[in-house]
Design a protein around this nucleic acid. Sequence first.
DNA 1: ACCTGAACACCGTTCAAGT
DNA 2: ACCTGAACACCGTTCAAGT
Lengths: 213, 213
Amino acid sequence: MAYSNHDGVGRKGTAGVVAPQNAKGQLPDSSRHLRSDAARNRRQVLRAARGLLDTGDTTLPMNLIARQAGVGVGTVYRHFPTRRALLEALSQGSLETLVEEARLAAETPDPAKGLERLLHCALQCQLDDIGLATILSEPDFECPETLVLGAELGRSVTTILDRARTCGAIRTDIDSDDIRRLIGGVHHALRAGASQGAHLDRYLQVLLKGLQR
Amino acid sequence: MAYSNHDGVGRKGTAGVVAPQNAKGQLPDSSRHLRSDAARNRRQVLRAARGLLDTGDTTLPMNLIARQAGVGVGTVYRHFPTRRALLEALSQGSLETLVEEARLAAETPDPAKGLERLLHCALQCQLDDIGLATILSEPDFECPETLVLGAELGRSVTTILDRARTCGAIRTDIDSDDIRRLIGGVHHALRAGASQGAHLDRYLQVLLKGLQR
DNA sequence: ACCTGAACACCGTTCAAGT
DNA sequence: ACCTGAACACCGTTCAAGT
């Protein structure tokens, strides 16, 4: 995935080659015009936060992050005024991946297949990055970049739903926000047990069948 | 509901007439053999905690509870060694209600109707008491009383599933723990939006249809 | 511009001292 | 038996002082 190597640092497993460019070869807005020491601090903060998140700890204590990143707390707050902002920066790569997948899903010839593809990918992305799940569970974005991405995601979902509805594949009273919430619910159900993603296919089947007309 | 007036104090709305007996006319185990001042402190702690929980705040800060209850922190810890224990005591009444409803659901002649009744009630109970939702999302109970109730609930759910499976009403690869997780997921989905329970019927329909063979 | 870290309020948890 | 609350470690957040 070309989208994982911007400044959000890598997620668990990925080796963390931090390139200052996104897939379009531009510096992300949030890192543009940063003094080099500031950029470095920002990366360190994100790296530390990512480490904590991959632990499964979603609380992201600012003081702890500052300590692990080797910066003052104030620096963390300067770069990320709220925990939400930090979370959005951490998950930007995952969100970009999901947005791209949703776009592809919306282009799938068979609308039912497109919906299935969308839901599967959304679940998998949230399982892979709990930060993504966290920001999607509360859909008011703080950062301009993620706001744009979220809007694009919403449009793709709406497109898929419209097409699936038109061909009678799904019930008519479900909108894109319902999908967001239901996917969040299934994700929650998947996490609420020992074997995290082991039941993904089964629960996904339940959701897909449940959405049928 | 006869089960709401034990020592768990009332939930939101209920006027909080605290009777020291449960529906069977016995003192709950946790309040038996308590010195009268201890019993009073326990009630005060539960009352304060319930107030916080009804705010929607599920964090239940022990120090704050102690302050609001007018007792020392140590007293809170003495009665409730962990937050989980406190949560279980708070939700015992709701759990009893749900257990009773599940028993009735298991006796419903039509297994499909029984399942529908069970799921509807489980969702409604969790919407009514977020404490119940919290303890059910992590099914290892600490208090003997709630442990027993949880086991009984599990048996009813299993009974309902067995009967529904036998008559071909539902898929064969869903067990009672799946139901617990999926209900928790739908509950989560319902909370993830402005209008809390407004979509209950719709999401419940999705789940019920999804569970069909 | 940006960074630092002290400062203050607050929570978690324990435990010695009380009645 | 039971209660109190000081004590210590730690987090959230701000902000004056620095470079």
